[in-house]
Write a protein that binds this DNA or RNA. Sequence first.
DNA 1: CGATAACATTTGTCTATACAACTAATGTAT
DNA 2: ATACATTAGTTGTATAGACAAATGTTATCG
Lengths: 147, 147
Amino acid sequence: MGAMENKDQSLLTRTAVIEMILSGTWVQDHLSEALKPYKLSIAQFNVLRILRGQKGKPASLACVNDKMIHKMSNTTRLVDKLLKKGLVDRIICPNNRRMIELTITSEGLELLKELDVVIDKTEEQLMSNLTPNEVNALVELLQKLKE
Amino acid sequence: MGAMENKDQSLLTRTAVIEMILSGTWVQDHLSEALKPYKLSIAQFNVLRILRGQKGKPASLACVNDKMIHKMSNTTRLVDKLLKKGLVDRIICPNNRRMIELTITSEGLELLKELDVVIDKTEEQLMSNLTPNEVNALVELLQKLKE
DNA sequence: CGATAACATTTGTCTATACAACTAATGTAT
DNA sequence: ATACATTAGTTGTATAGACAAATGTTATCG
């Protein structure tokens, strides 16, 4: 393997790394733009979706945190904001008073129903330059990458 | 096209969106981990690289900002930190006193030389699960996506 | 039973980012 | 030349995130 090929390869690698950062922020920028009229951050939106996914079964903070896209140190304060907006309920778990039980309120569910449409459309637009096969290939590459 | 195919397609789209966010933060986490011993953020490191890329020719703040991966509102304060560390110089442009001229110092160049090794290795590791062809395909998909 | 460890969440603090208002310098048009 | 707009950068402020220490609760072990 010559020096030239090494250089090409490391340039490609660097390009890939930069493209991944750019693509990640690109996606997030568009999503948070779509959420802006609803005064929700992506993180807040995801917590709501996680709670809906529980189908009534309450979730602890740690459980929510595990399922979050951005692991953050500070889920308490994030949930505080959703509480203030009346989108979630928080009670102390009767069986284990160290834990809390989070559930989504009916207002939260209503809001999510509205957001589903908005987010679906945004996600579709974001991917509109790729064919379904290409989207599939992209997902597989990204998953393989992080295995 | 049946309802089933629609659902599959939108699930795939959603998966792709999430994978892109995850991959972006995954890359950034590893890079900032690699930079940690040097007390540099990714943004600071990129400013240094941008200035080195100028090959002695000074750059204005706006110029640096245009080339940055994360467009940020606040390049002034970022550069302040590099100044305090002695990694860059900042003078007022004599031709247009509104502008500043940023250059990287020799200390900055020294540091970058050290970091090149570290970052190259990190980037190589990040991509090590993919073959060169796959990395290439990934780059092409990501670029096509954002066209 | 009492001390200690482990657990789940909260709080404090410091730094980072977003957004808008501000300052200073230059360009433009009458 | 004066007024007005534009440009380049800086500063203020409010919000978000990282990290570590603190709080309160339950489990474990002698």
